[in-house]
Amino acid sequence: MSSDEDFSIVINGDTDTMEGIQEQIVKYKEQHRLVLQEQQDLATGVYKVKDLELQFQRRTNILRQALEEDDASHAKTVENETMRLASLRRDEVRLKEEIDAALEQQSQLDKDNYHLRQQTAVSTAVPEKRVVFTGVTGNDAKTQSFEMKPHVVYPMEGGTALITFEDEKVARKILEMKEHKVELGECTITLEAKPVQVLVPSLVEMDTQICPHRVLVSSLPSKLRGEVLLDKLELHFSKGKNGGGEVEATDMLHDSGNVVITFVNGHVAKGLTDQQQHDVNFGKKEKKHKVKVTPFLNGKITHFQTRVSECSHTVLLAGVPAVMEQENLQDLLEIHFQKSSNGGGEVDAFLYNPLGQHSLALFQEECPIKD
Protein backbone atom coordinates (compact mmCIF):
# COMPACT_ATOMS: atom_id res chain seq x y z
CA MET A 1 0.00 0.00 0.00
CA SER A 2 0.97 3.67 -0.48
CA SER A 3 1.29 6.13 2.26
CA ASP A 4 -1.78 7.85 0.97
CA GLU A 5 -3.79 4.71 1.73
CA ASP A 6 -2.31 4.38 5.25
CA PHE A 7 -3.11 7.89 6.35
CA SER A 8 -6.12 9.74 5.17
CA ILE A 9 -7.58 12.80 6.79
CA VAL A 10 -11.13 13.62 6.12
CA ILE A 11 -11.92 17.24 6.75
CA ASN A 12 -15.57 17.78 7.30
CA GLY A 13 -15.43 21.41 7.82
CA ASP A 14 -13.61 24.40 7.05
CA THR A 15 -9.94 23.65 7.15
CA ASP A 16 -8.81 26.75 5.61
CA THR A 17 -9.22 28.71 8.74
CA MET A 18 -7.23 28.43 11.90
CA GLU A 19 -10.34 27.79 13.92
CA GLY A 20 -11.29 24.87 11.76
CA ILE A 21 -7.85 23.35 12.12
CA GLN A 22 -7.87 23.77 15.93
CA GLU A 23 -11.29 22.28 16.09
CA GLN A 24 -10.05 19.26 14.20
CA ILE A 25 -7.02 18.97 16.48
CA VAL A 26 -9.24 19.01 19.56
CA LYS A 27 -11.43 16.40 18.01
CA TYR A 28 -8.52 14.13 17.24
CA LYS A 29 -7.08 14.64 20.72
CA GLU A 30 -10.40 13.48 22.17
CA GLN A 31 -10.39 10.47 19.88
CA HIS A 32 -6.81 9.74 20.96
CA ARG A 33 -7.77 10.03 24.62
CA LEU A 34 -10.64 7.68 24.08
CA VAL A 35 -8.36 5.19 22.36
CA LEU A 36 -5.85 5.43 25.25
CA GLN A 37 -8.66 5.01 27.75
CA GLU A 38 -9.90 1.99 25.83
CA GLN A 39 -6.39 0.55 25.78
CA GLN A 40 -6.09 1.14 29.54
CA ASP A 41 -9.47 -0.51 30.10
CA LEU A 42 -8.38 -3.46 27.98
CA ALA A 43 -5.12 -3.73 29.93
CA THR A 44 -7.06 -3.60 33.19
CA GLY A 45 -9.43 -6.26 31.87
CA VAL A 46 -6.50 -8.45 30.81
CA TYR A 47 -4.97 -8.04 34.32
CA LYS A 48 -8.25 -8.92 35.96
CA VAL A 49 -8.67 -11.93 33.68
CA LYS A 50 -5.13 -13.10 34.50
CA ASP A 51 -5.83 -12.57 38.21
CA LEU A 52 -9.04 -14.53 37.91
CA GLU A 53 -7.11 -17.20 36.05
CA LEU A 54 -4.56 -17.39 38.89
CA GLN A 55 -7.32 -17.52 41.48
CA PHE A 56 -9.10 -20.21 39.48
CA GLN A 57 -5.82 -22.15 39.20
CA ARG A 58 -5.28 -21.91 42.96
CA ARG A 59 -8.84 -22.99 43.67
CA THR A 60 -8.46 -25.80 41.16
CA ASN A 61 -5.28 -26.98 42.93
CA ILE A 62 -6.97 -26.75 46.30
CA LEU A 63 -9.99 -28.65 45.04
CA ARG A 64 -7.75 -31.24 43.37
CA GLN A 65 -5.76 -31.69 46.63
CA ALA A 66 -8.97 -31.94 48.62
CA LEU A 67 -10.31 -34.48 46.13
CA GLU A 68 -7.12 -36.51 46.36
CA GLU A 69 -7.31 -36.38 50.16
CA ASP A 70 -10.95 -37.41 49.98
CA ASP A 71 -10.05 -40.27 47.63
CA ALA A 72 -7.25 -41.37 50.01
CA SER A 73 -9.57 -41.08 53.00
CA HIS A 74 -12.27 -43.03 51.17
CA ALA A 75 -9.76 -45.71 50.16
CA LYS A 76 -8.54 -45.92 53.79
CA THR A 77 -12.14 -46.11 54.99
CA VAL A 78 -12.90 -48.86 52.46
CA GLU A 79 -9.76 -50.73 53.55
CA ASN A 80 -10.69 -50.39 57.23
CA GLU A 81 -14.26 -51.49 56.56
CA THR A 82 -12.97 -54.42 54.49
CA MET A 83 -10.68 -55.45 57.35
CA ARG A 84 -13.53 -54.96 59.82
CA LEU A 85 -15.82 -57.06 57.63
CA ALA A 86 -13.16 -59.78 57.42
CA SER A 87 -12.76 -59.62 61.22
CA LEU A 88 -16.53 -59.85 61.67
CA ARG A 89 -16.63 -62.85 59.36
CA ARG A 90 -13.84 -64.49 61.36
CA ASP A 91 -15.74 -63.72 64.55
CA GLU A 92 -18.86 -65.18 62.94
CA VAL A 93 -17.00 -68.38 62.05
CA ARG A 94 -15.49 -68.54 65.55
CA LEU A 95 -18.85 -67.91 67.22
CA LYS A 96 -20.45 -70.55 65.02
CA GLU A 97 -17.74 -73.01 66.04
CA GLU A 98 -18.27 -72.04 69.70
CA ILE A 99 -22.03 -72.47 69.27
CA ASP A 100 -21.50 -75.89 67.66
CA ALA A 101 -19.10 -76.84 70.47
CA ALA A 102 -21.58 -75.57 73.06
CA LEU A 103 -24.39 -77.53 71.41
CA GLU A 104 -22.20 -80.62 71.34
CA GLN A 105 -21.26 -80.04 74.98
CA GLN A 106 -24.93 -79.53 75.83
CA SER A 107 -25.74 -82.78 74.07
CA GLN A 108 -23.00 -84.53 76.02
CA LEU A 109 -24.26 -82.95 79.25
CA ASP A 110 -27.75 -84.17 78.44
CA LYS A 111 -26.36 -87.66 77.93
CA ASP A 112 -24.37 -87.40 81.17
CA ASN A 113 -27.45 -86.09 82.96
CA TYR A 114 -29.49 -89.00 81.66
CA HIS A 115 -26.68 -91.33 82.67
CA LEU A 116 -26.56 -89.77 86.17
CA ARG A 117 -30.33 -90.10 86.51
CA GLN A 118 -29.94 -93.75 85.66
CA GLN A 119 -27.14 -94.03 88.21
CA THR A 120 -29.32 -92.29 90.79
CA ALA A 121 -32.11 -94.72 90.08
CA VAL A 122 -29.65 -97.57 90.55
CA SER A 123 -28.13 -96.10 93.71
CA THR A 124 -31.58 -95.95 95.30
CA ALA A 125 -32.29 -99.56 94.37
CA VAL A 126 -29.03 -101.38 95.13
CA PRO A 127 -29.15 -104.72 96.92
CA GLU A 128 -29.18 -104.38 100.67
CA LYS A 129 -26.04 -105.39 102.50
CA ARG A 130 -25.65 -105.72 106.23
CA VAL A 131 -22.75 -103.78 107.78
CA VAL A 132 -21.33 -103.56 111.29
CA PHE A 133 -18.93 -101.12 113.00
CA THR A 134 -15.71 -102.89 113.99
CA GLY A 135 -14.22 -100.10 116.10
CA VAL A 136 -11.59 -99.06 113.54
CA THR A 137 -11.54 -95.48 112.31
CA GLY A 138 -10.35 -94.46 108.86
CA ASN A 139 -8.35 -91.58 107.46
CA ASP A 140 -10.48 -88.85 105.85
CA ALA A 141 -7.78 -88.26 103.24
CA LYS A 142 -8.32 -91.75 101.88
CA THR A 143 -12.11 -91.77 101.73
CA GLN A 144 -12.16 -91.46 97.91
CA SER A 145 -11.50 -95.12 97.25
CA PHE A 146 -13.29 -98.34 96.44
CA GLU A 147 -12.75 -101.91 97.45
CA MET A 148 -10.60 -104.05 95.13
CA LYS A 149 -9.35 -107.57 95.61
CA PRO A 150 -5.76 -107.77 94.37
CA HIS A 151 -5.11 -110.57 91.92
CA VAL A 152 -1.55 -109.87 90.75
CA VAL A 153 0.32 -112.38 88.60
CA TYR A 154 4.08 -112.18 89.19
CA PRO A 155 6.39 -113.92 86.67
CA MET A 156 9.28 -115.78 88.34
CA GLU A 157 12.62 -116.34 86.65
CA GLY A 158 14.46 -119.65 86.94
CA GLY A 159 16.68 -120.08 89.98
CA THR A 160 14.56 -117.86 92.25
CA ALA A 161 12.31 -118.34 95.25
CA LEU A 162 9.58 -116.30 96.91
CA ILE A 163 9.29 -116.41 100.68
CA THR A 164 6.51 -114.71 102.66
CA PHE A 165 7.11 -114.10 106.37
CA GLU A 166 4.43 -113.73 109.01
CA ASP A 167 6.20 -110.70 110.48
CA GLU A 168 6.98 -107.72 108.24
CA LYS A 169 10.06 -106.90 110.37
CA VAL A 170 11.61 -110.27 109.50
CA ALA A 171 11.20 -109.61 105.77
CA ARG A 172 12.78 -106.18 106.18
CA LYS A 173 15.70 -107.68 108.12
CA ILE A 174 16.30 -110.34 105.42
CA LEU A 175 16.40 -107.57 102.80
CA GLU A 176 18.84 -105.50 104.85
CA MET A 177 21.22 -108.48 105.07
CA LYS A 178 21.11 -108.80 101.24
CA GLU A 179 23.38 -111.88 100.92
CA HIS A 180 22.63 -115.13 102.71
CA LYS A 181 24.86 -118.17 102.92
CA VAL A 182 22.83 -121.38 103.16
CA GLU A 183 24.49 -124.69 104.10
CA LEU A 184 23.11 -127.64 102.19
CA GLY A 185 24.91 -130.61 103.60
CA GLU A 186 28.35 -130.74 101.99
CA CYS A 187 27.93 -127.52 99.98
CA THR A 188 27.13 -123.90 100.75
CA ILE A 189 25.24 -121.60 98.40
CA THR A 190 24.94 -117.79 98.46
CA LEU A 191 21.57 -116.20 97.79
CA GLU A 192 20.67 -112.56 97.18
CA ALA A 193 17.57 -111.11 98.85
CA LYS A 194 15.60 -108.62 96.73
CA PRO A 195 12.34 -106.76 97.34
CA VAL A 196 9.24 -107.87 95.45
CA GLN A 197 7.68 -105.04 93.46
CA VAL A 198 4.31 -105.45 91.76
CA LEU A 199 2.06 -103.22 89.68
CA VAL A 200 -1.20 -102.35 91.41
CA PRO A 201 -4.02 -99.99 90.28
CA SER A 202 -3.74 -96.40 91.46
CA LEU A 203 -6.61 -94.86 89.49
CA VAL A 204 -9.53 -96.61 87.82
CA GLU A 205 -12.30 -94.72 86.02
CA MET A 206 -15.28 -96.66 84.72
CA ASP A 207 -18.20 -95.78 82.49
CA THR A 208 -21.31 -97.66 83.52
CA GLN A 209 -24.79 -97.94 82.07
CA ILE A 210 -27.90 -99.92 82.85
CA CYS A 211 -28.12 -103.17 80.93
CA PRO A 212 -31.52 -103.42 79.20
CA HIS A 213 -31.48 -107.23 79.17
CA ARG A 214 -30.29 -108.07 82.72
CA VAL A 215 -31.50 -107.68 86.30
CA LEU A 216 -29.83 -108.33 89.64
CA VAL A 217 -31.83 -110.39 92.12
CA SER A 218 -30.92 -110.09 95.82
CA SER A 219 -32.42 -110.83 99.26
CA LEU A 220 -32.52 -114.50 98.31
CA PRO A 221 -33.34 -117.28 100.85
CA SER A 222 -30.19 -118.45 102.63
CA LYS A 223 -31.29 -122.08 102.80
CA LEU A 224 -31.58 -122.47 99.05
CA ARG A 225 -28.52 -122.35 96.79
CA GLY A 226 -27.09 -123.78 93.56
CA GLU A 227 -29.04 -125.04 90.60
CA VAL A 228 -32.28 -125.39 92.54
CA LEU A 229 -32.31 -121.69 93.35
CA LEU A 230 -31.52 -120.74 89.76
CA ASP A 231 -34.25 -123.04 88.41
CA LYS A 232 -36.86 -121.55 90.77
CA LEU A 233 -35.91 -118.01 89.76
CA GLU A 234 -35.94 -118.85 86.06
CA LEU A 235 -39.37 -120.51 86.38
CA HIS A 236 -40.85 -117.49 88.17
CA PHE A 237 -39.40 -114.73 86.01
CA SER A 238 -40.06 -116.49 82.71
CA LYS A 239 -43.82 -116.09 83.23
CA GLY A 240 -45.58 -113.07 81.77
CA LYS A 241 -48.08 -112.91 84.67
CA ASN A 242 -45.13 -112.24 87.00
CA GLY A 243 -43.90 -109.43 84.76
CA GLY A 244 -41.18 -111.59 83.25
CA GLY A 245 -40.34 -112.99 79.84
CA GLU A 246 -38.20 -115.55 78.07
CA VAL A 247 -35.02 -116.13 80.11
CA GLU A 248 -31.75 -116.50 78.26
CA ALA A 249 -29.46 -117.27 81.24
CA THR A 250 -29.23 -117.24 85.04
CA ASP A 251 -25.87 -116.78 86.75
CA MET A 252 -24.92 -116.93 90.42
CA LEU A 253 -22.52 -114.27 91.77
CA HIS A 254 -20.72 -116.33 94.39
CA ASP A 255 -18.98 -113.39 96.04
CA SER A 256 -22.29 -111.70 96.92
CA GLY A 257 -24.81 -114.54 96.74
CA ASN A 258 -26.94 -112.58 94.26
CA VAL A 259 -28.21 -113.81 90.90
CA VAL A 260 -28.07 -112.18 87.46
CA ILE A 261 -30.97 -113.01 85.12
CA THR A 262 -30.61 -112.31 81.39
CA PHE A 263 -33.77 -111.92 79.30
CA VAL A 264 -34.11 -112.34 75.54
CA ASN A 265 -36.25 -109.22 75.13
CA GLY A 266 -35.04 -105.80 76.27
CA HIS A 267 -38.32 -104.45 77.73
CA VAL A 268 -38.68 -107.07 80.48
CA ALA A 269 -35.88 -105.87 82.78
CA LYS A 270 -37.22 -102.30 83.05
CA GLY A 271 -40.65 -103.44 84.20
CA LEU A 272 -39.19 -105.77 86.84
CA THR A 273 -36.82 -103.16 88.29
CA ASP A 274 -39.59 -100.55 88.48
CA GLN A 275 -41.49 -102.81 90.85
CA GLN A 276 -38.33 -103.95 92.74
CA GLN A 277 -40.06 -106.20 95.30
CA HIS A 278 -41.28 -109.58 93.98
CA ASP A 279 -42.81 -112.56 95.80
CA VAL A 280 -41.27 -115.81 94.57
CA ASN A 281 -42.40 -119.33 95.49
CA PHE A 282 -39.28 -121.41 96.17
CA GLY A 283 -41.12 -124.54 97.41
CA LYS A 284 -44.58 -126.01 98.00
CA LYS A 285 -44.25 -126.19 101.75
CA GLU A 286 -42.73 -122.75 102.11
CA LYS A 287 -44.64 -119.53 101.70
CA LYS A 288 -43.51 -117.04 99.10
CA HIS A 289 -40.22 -115.26 99.71
CA LYS A 290 -39.81 -111.57 98.88
CA VAL A 291 -36.78 -110.87 96.69
CA LYS A 292 -35.43 -107.55 95.43
CA VAL A 293 -34.87 -106.92 91.70
CA THR A 294 -32.56 -104.04 90.80
CA PRO A 295 -30.92 -102.83 87.56
CA PHE A 296 -27.75 -104.55 86.41
CA LEU A 297 -24.89 -102.29 85.38
CA ASN A 298 -22.61 -102.88 82.43
CA GLY A 299 -19.28 -101.13 82.77
CA LYS A 300 -16.06 -100.57 80.92
CA ILE A 301 -12.78 -99.06 82.12
CA THR A 302 -12.18 -95.66 80.49
CA HIS A 303 -9.01 -94.70 82.38
CA PHE A 304 -6.55 -96.91 84.20
CA GLN A 305 -3.31 -96.01 85.99
CA THR A 306 -0.93 -98.23 87.91
CA ARG A 307 1.81 -97.71 90.44
CA VAL A 308 4.72 -99.81 91.58
CA SER A 309 4.29 -101.11 95.14
CA GLU A 310 6.53 -103.23 97.29
CA CYS A 311 5.19 -106.30 99.03
CA SER A 312 6.12 -105.79 102.66
CA HIS A 313 6.05 -109.43 103.81
CA THR A 314 7.52 -111.19 100.75
CA VAL A 315 11.18 -111.43 99.70
CA LEU A 316 12.65 -112.65 96.40
CA LEU A 317 15.67 -114.98 96.74
CA ALA A 318 17.83 -114.94 93.60
CA GLY A 319 20.75 -117.14 92.53
CA VAL A 320 19.37 -120.50 93.68
CA PRO A 321 21.39 -123.25 91.92
CA ALA A 322 19.92 -126.63 90.97
CA VAL A 323 22.04 -128.68 93.35
CA MET A 324 19.32 -131.18 94.32
CA GLU A 325 15.70 -132.14 93.79
CA GLN A 326 13.19 -129.28 93.82
CA GLU A 327 11.19 -130.43 96.86
CA ASN A 328 14.26 -131.21 98.97
CA LEU A 329 15.91 -127.88 98.12
CA GLN A 330 12.70 -125.97 98.84
CA ASP A 331 12.33 -127.66 102.24
CA LEU A 332 15.97 -126.92 103.22
CA LEU A 333 15.68 -123.27 102.17
CA GLU A 334 12.43 -122.83 104.09
CA ILE A 335 14.00 -124.40 107.21
CA HIS A 336 17.02 -122.08 106.91
CA PHE A 337 14.90 -118.89 106.77
CA GLN A 338 12.66 -120.02 109.61
CA LYS A 339 15.56 -119.91 112.06
CA SER A 340 15.97 -116.67 113.99
CA SER A 341 19.74 -117.30 114.13
CA ASN A 342 19.79 -116.75 110.37
CA GLY A 343 17.74 -113.57 110.68
CA GLY A 344 14.53 -115.38 109.73
CA GLY A 345 11.19 -116.08 111.33
CA GLU A 346 7.84 -117.80 110.84
CA VAL A 347 7.18 -118.50 107.14
CA ASP A 348 3.66 -118.21 105.71
CA ALA A 349 4.46 -119.29 102.15
CA PHE A 350 7.45 -120.49 100.12
CA LEU A 351 7.74 -121.12 96.36
CA TYR A 352 10.89 -122.23 94.53
CA ASN A 353 11.25 -122.08 90.74
CA PRO A 354 14.24 -124.16 89.46
CA LEU A 355 16.59 -123.05 86.69
CA GLY A 356 15.21 -123.48 83.20
CA GLN A 357 11.60 -123.19 84.32
CA HIS A 358 9.11 -120.31 84.33
CA SER A 359 6.41 -120.00 86.97
CA LEU A 360 3.71 -117.43 87.73
CA ALA A 361 3.21 -116.50 91.37
CA LEU A 362 -0.25 -115.25 92.32
CA PHE A 363 -0.52 -112.42 94.86
CA GLN A 364 -3.99 -112.16 96.35
CA GLU A 365 -5.64 -110.02 99.01
CA GLU A 366 -3.84 -111.79 101.88
CA CYS A 367 -0.51 -110.38 100.65
CA PRO A 368 0.06 -107.11 102.55
CA ILE A 369 1.23 -104.41 100.19
CA LYS A 370 2.70 -101.05 101.11
CA ASP A 371 3.33 -98.01 98.95
Rank of each mutant, 00 (worst) to 15 (best):
Q197N: 12
V228T: 14
S219R: 14
K241D: 12
K270V: 15
V215T: 07
C211H: 12
R225M: 07
V260L: 11
L220S: 05
P212V: 11
V228H: 14
P195I: 00
V200E: 00
E192Q: 10
N242C: 09
D255N: 08
H254F: 09
E227F: 08
G240F: 14
N258S: 12
S202A: 10
I210A: 09
C211R: 10
E227C: 05
K232N: 14
L224F: 08
L235C: 13
E246Q: 14
G240H: 13
D255K: 08
G226P: 01
S222M: 15
L253P: 03
A193C: 02
D231F: 12
K232Q: 14
K241Y: 14
I189R: 02
V264P: 03
T188P: 02
V259I: 08
N242A: 09
I210M: 12
Q209D: 14
G257K: 02
G245C: 06
N242M: 05
K239C: 10
E248F: 09
H254M: 06
S218Q: 09
V215G: 06
H236Y: 13
G257A: 04
G257D: 06
D251R: 13
V247I: 10
G244H: 05
T208I: 08
L191W: 00
A193F: 00
A249W: 07
A269S: 15
V215H: 04
D251S: 12
P201F: 02
T208A: 11
F263G: 01
L199V: 01
K194D: 00
S202K: 06
T190A: 07
H267R: 15
F237I: 08
A193V: 01
P221Q: 09
R214N: 12
E205C: 10
T262Y: 05
L224W: 06
H236K: 05
M206E: 15
E246L: 13
V198R: 01
L230V: 07
L203P: 04
Q209N: 14
D231H: 14
G245Y: 03
S222G: 12
L199H: 02
V198E: 01
T188Q: 12
F263S: 03
V204N: 02
I261K: 03
T188R: 10
E248P: 02
F263L: 08
R225E: 10
R214D: 08
V259H: 03
C211W: 11
V268A: 07
M206N: 14
P212S: 13
V217C: 09
L229V: 05
L220Y: 05
L230P: 01
G244K: 04
D231R: 15
G244C: 10
G226K: 04
P212E: 12
V228I: 14
V215N: 05
C211Q: 11
T250E: 06
A249I: 02
L229I: 11
M206Q: 15
V259N: 03
N265D: 15
S219P: 05
I261C: 07
A193L: 00
R214P: 04
I261A: 06
F237L: 10
F237T: 06
M206P: 03
E227P: 01
L235E: 15
S219E: 14
A193W: 00
N242W: 04
V259W: 03
M252T: 05
P195V: 00
P221T: 10
V217D: 06
I210D: 04
S218D: 06
V198S: 00
L220C: 09
G243L: 09
N242Q: 08
K232R: 13
